[in-house]
Nucleic acid binder design. Structure first.
Lengths: 233, 233
DNA sequence: TGCCATACTTACGAGACCGTAGGTTACGGT
DNA sequence: ACCGTAACCTACGGTCTCGTAAGTATGGCA
């Protein structure tokens, strides 16, 4: 449910309510008076969901408030406005994704590194699907960095560095690192976006095939690729 | 309100019109009385531009009309509304892209086929940048096909078939064709999206590197890849 | 128990936008 | 020169949404 830790549980033992549906307790709360922090988290959850499915402009503050069982001014009290809420949602999501991906970039061998990164991204997509959808969608205002909307491209910038070093070590032109970085990220990102809807092969299998393609290329595909590192889930 | 996309060129040889670049020089026409067809084309051009840079919801009919030097009702006369205009723009763009890509899928050898497809997509991106941006952005209403917004994914479906045949011929599981199709399209699409802003390497070079990655994989990259087919531009 | 900060509400202003009703101007044929 | 038609305009209704002002309940604590 909640993404970060701070102030997740209410102090009152009272409010029973939300234990009904497993998918996010956020559902027509019975006029419960929450702590500031609690309400804040709830609004973030709801906002994330709505932004993911309707986009920024397609979501109204009133809708968010209604779904939380409160009125608009509460949202304004906490985030100062629609953009404020959106900013927090995006920021947390970016941080989460970056944590997971960069945390996976530890292995020495490039192939294993690729493997872990791909798996990490898929893992993020699976666990934080709504967040991923938001990052893939476009931002409210045109970004400073060019006209490129989707925030995923920012991730690619991170990959550039790693790839650049590797290229230099192998004697390739490091100026090409951005290109290959974009290609790799695009490969995994769009596949992930497709996989979100049709969860046909399991996560590890998808990762294995992606690595298969990225590492061996279409010319030398392995029929049944396996991940080197052994995953649990 | 005809939504179709026929009637491309005005009959009159008179007005300067949009014959030059496809991205059109449409700019603050000085209250010239145009033919229906002319005005229609102009509105389509302007609409494409605005939709590309502000998205569907971020663009107002009034803005489109103003930029064309006319008033709103003219737009409604031609397209019946905002969605009508958007529909025509998207339809034309999809058709254009599909024409170019499927037109490039003729070669026998898979690698050459890949090469041509990648080049064709980059070619489309370069020539019809605004259209590409629209296809990558999300549609006004949630599409019927899943929750996947970007229209580019429809292109991937085309690739599935070709890849499926090839897989069967090579003894791979054809059920994996969608996955690899998504990966390939994503690779080229995101790279293209990046390349739109930073046009650093030339188109042919980008294509060559993409083919390099897709065909040989990171494990066997060629230092200086070249396209097999010889391009002029 | 009474006080007071905090959580929360109703009501409304301002502006943007879509879409339409009905009237007006220019062009081309006769 | 006339007249019809196609192109185009002003003006407005209705809806939606952001954001704010001002007032009300609630729960802990002296």
């Amino acid at each position: 449910m909640a993404i970060d830790s701070s102030a997740s549980n209410g102090s009152k033992g009272k409010s029973s309510g939300s234990s009904g549906t497993p998918s996010s307790g956020t559902r027509r709360a019975r006029r419960v008076r929450m702590t500031g922090a609690e309400r804040r988290e709830q609004l973030l959850d709801i906002g994330r969901t709505l932004f993911a499915e309707r986009g920024y402009e397609g979501t109204s503050v009133e809708e968010i408030a209604a779904k939380a069982g409160v009125s608009k001014p509460v949202v304004y009290e906490h985030f100062g406005g629609k953009e404020g809420l959106y900013a927090v949602v995006v920021d947390r999501e970016m941080r989460q994704l970056l944590d997971m991906v960069t945390g996976a970039l530890t292995a020495g061998h490039p192939r294993e590194l690729l493997e872990q990164a791909a798996f990490a991204l898929l893992d993020y997509i699976e666990t934080f699907t709504d967040g991923f959808r938001i990052l893939v969608r476009d931002s409210p205002v045109a970004q400073s960095t060019g006209t490129f909307a989707s925030l995923i491209s920012d991730i690619a910038t991170q990959v550039e560095d790693i790839l650049g070093l590797e290229f230099k070590a192998r004697g390739f032109d490091p100026k090409l690192a951005p290109l290959y970085a974009q290609a790799l990220v695009g490969m995994v990102a769009l596949t992930g976006q497709w996989w979100v809807d049709a969860r046909k092969p399991k996560k590890a299998e998808v990762a294995a095939h992606l690595v298969n393609l990225a590492w061996h290329g279409l010319g030398n595909l392995e029929p049944k690729p396996r991940l080197i590192g052994h995953r649990k889930n």
